[in-house]
Simulated scan of single mutants.
Amino acid sequence: MPEYPTALGASSLDKITLLGQDLATDVMGEVGFGELAFWLATQRRPTRGETRVFEAVLAALADHGFTPTAIVTRLTYLSAPDSVQGALAAGLLGGGSRFLGVTEDCGRFLHDVLAAAECGYPVNEAGWDTLALATVRSQREAGRFIPGLGHHVHKQGDPRTARLFQIATEEQLFGPHLSLFAAIGRVHPQILGRTLPLNGAGVCGAALADLGLPLDLLRGFALLARTAGLIGQLAEELRNPVANDIFLSVDLNNKPVPPRSTRSTRSEAAIATHHPAA
């Protein structure tokens, strides 16, 4: 018979093991959910500091009000109240390059820059600023945005950013990805001619990368956090429904127009200048 080895969950007649632990006696009531999620992804138990930073990231990404992911979850539940899983899945499927996906995009971007650094990591703030200047200049010359730079609401500064920097510093987990991102925040006005905030989703990506979590899973952690937020959206929808009002506001105010073969210039311009956010 074939064998399928796993260090994750396995069951026998009278026992369930998880990560080499007895689920009932060693995990349940002993390990927090954030700690367990980190442990499952890395197959090593995080330190207290790693757990604090990781759970701060989850909290930062859980819910931001009536975002597209929240709205589509509520509308899907309105359409199919018999399918909670469908409503949650609809919201999670919206986690992409403009919402939530910035976490992965920023982490990958910073990782690629660091991997290409020819002289290793800088040893002081001036060195990080030099690397950041070269990075921003290169992106500008190539006509590319820097993931995690800019926010459509928090134009004067994302409140999550400073707090995540603080927590990572307190836990001595302010690593190279956060250092580079912080430097980008300091120097980019010299190249771009304007000041943009470091958005929270980008900082979350830098923090997760500094924790050594797999880059391929960074968006997954953002979706893990948002799942809790979407459950909250559904719970509030049950208590104080708004989905039908959202639906009717569109349905009763639609305006028939002649077909057009291309999108309007205004719409294309809006897409081109949109800064991703969480």
Rank of each mutant, 00 (worst) to 15 (best):
E118S: 12
L13D: 12
V257C: 12
L173R: 09
D14F: 11
T51R: 13
G148H: 02
R226Y: 08
W39C: 03
R137E: 11
I231V: 15
G157K: 13
A90M: 11
L164N: 01
A270D: 13
R44C: 07
A168H: 12
Q21P: 10
A162W: 03
A277Y: 05
D82H: 14
T17F: 00
T135K: 11
L211K: 00
P276I: 02
A89E: 01
T195Y: 10
P214W: 02
N124Q: 08
L192G: 01
G185I: 03
D129A: 10
P197D: 00
A207R: 01
S79N: 04
L13C: 11
G120W: 11
R98D: 02
A270P: 13
H64I: 10
L196C: 04
V27M: 06
L93M: 11
A126L: 11
T17E: 07
T135W: 08
V84C: 07
T47M: 07
D112L: 14
T130W: 09
E141D: 00
L196M: 05
V123K: 15
D105N: 10
R108I: 05
Q21D: 12
N199A: 01
S83G: 01
G34Y: 01
L252K: 13
H274E: 03
V84F: 07
E268L: 14
L8E: 09
A10W: 15
L61T: 04
A277G: 15
Y4R: 13
G95R: 13
Q156I: 10
L23K: 10
A24F: 13
L234E: 05
N253I: 10
H152A: 13
F165I: 01
T161R: 08
L238M: 11
R45K: 03
F165H: 06
Q190V: 04
W128A: 02
